[in-house]
Amino acid sequence: MTSRVTFISAAMNPSLRQARFDDGTAPLEDGGAARARAAAGALPSAARAVISPSLRCRETATALGLGEAEPCAELAGLDAGRWRGLTLDEVGAAEPEAVARWLADPAAAPHGGESVRDLCLRIGRWLDTASQTDGHTLAVVEPEVVRAAVVHVLGAPATAFWRADVPPLTATGISGRAGRWNLGLGRPLNGA
Results as ranks from 00 to 15, higher is better:
Glu70Met: 10
Val151Leu: 11
Ser131Pro: 05
Thr2His: 15
Thr6Val: 08
Cys72Val: 03
Pro110Glu: 03
Ile174Gly: 01
Arg122Trp: 08
Pro71Cys: 09
Leu127Glu: 08
Ala94Met: 03
Leu185Gly: 03
Ile174Phe: 06
Ala69His: 00
Leu154Phe: 10
Ala164Thr: 09
Asp128Gln: 05
Gly124Lys: 01
Ala33Thr: 12
Glu74Gly: 12
Pro27Ile: 12
Arg147Glu: 06
Ala148Ile: 03
Arg56Val: 04
Val91His: 09
Leu119Ser: 03
Arg20Cys: 06
Glu59Val: 03
Ala80Cys: 14
Ala178Glu: 01
Ala76Met: 11
Asp23Pro: 00
Glu95Met: 15
Ala139Lys: 01
Ala160His: 14
Arg48Asn: 02
Arg180Asp: 15
Leu86Ser: 14
Gly179Gln: 00
Val141Trp: 08
Leu127Thr: 05
Gly179Glu: 00
Ser45Lys: 09
Ala130Val: 07
Val150Gln: 11
Glu70Asn: 03
Ala148Thr: 07
Val91Ala: 11
Pro71Val: 04
Glu95Trp: 08
Thr137Arg: 04
Leu86Ala: 14
Glu90Ser: 13
Ala76Asp: 11
Ala76Thr: 07
His136Trp: 06
Val145Leu: 08
Trp83Ala: 09
Leu88Gln: 12
Thr60Leu: 04
Leu154Pro: 01
Ala100Lys: 10
Ala192Gly: 05
Glu90His: 10
Leu138Cys: 04
Ala149Asn: 06
Gly184Arg: 14
Arg17Thr: 14
Ala130Lys: 04
Val150Ala: 10
Ala34Ile: 04
Glu29Arg: 14
Thr129Lys: 13
Ser3Glu: 13
Gly41Asp: 06
Ala61His: 06
Arg101Asn: 01
Ser52Glu: 00
Ala47Thr: 10
Pro14Lys: 02
Ala93Gly: 07
Leu88Ile: 15
Pro143Leu: 07
Ser15Pro: 12
Gly112Cys: 02
Trp102Val: 03
Thr172Glu: 06
Leu88Phe: 15
Gly135Val: 03
Ser3Gln: 15
Ala10Pro: 01
Val99Gln: 08
Thr133Ala: 12
Leu16Ala: 15
Leu121Phe: 13
Asp128Gly: 08
Leu78Phe: 09
Val99Lys: 06
Thr170His: 13
Leu189Trp: 07
Leu16Trp: 15
Val91Asp: 05
Pro106His: 12
Gly124Tyr: 09
Arg187Thr: 13
Leu78Cys: 02
Leu189Tyr: 08
Asp22Pro: 09
Glu90Gln: 15
Asn182Ile: 11
Leu189Ser: 06
Ala38Phe: 05
Gly176Trp: 02
Cys72Glu: 13
Cys72Thr: 07
Ala76Arg: 11
Ala39Glu: 05
Thr62Tyr: 13
Ala149Lys: 04
Leu121Gln: 13
Phe21Gln: 07
Pro44Met: 14
Leu169Glu: 07
Leu88Arg: 15
Trp181Cys: 06
Arg56Ser: 11
Thr6Ala: 04
Ala80Arg: 10
Leu127Pro: 10
Pro167Asp: 01
Val166Gly: 06
Gly135Asp: 04
Ala61Val: 05
Ser15Phe: 07
Val150Leu: 12
Val166Cys: 11
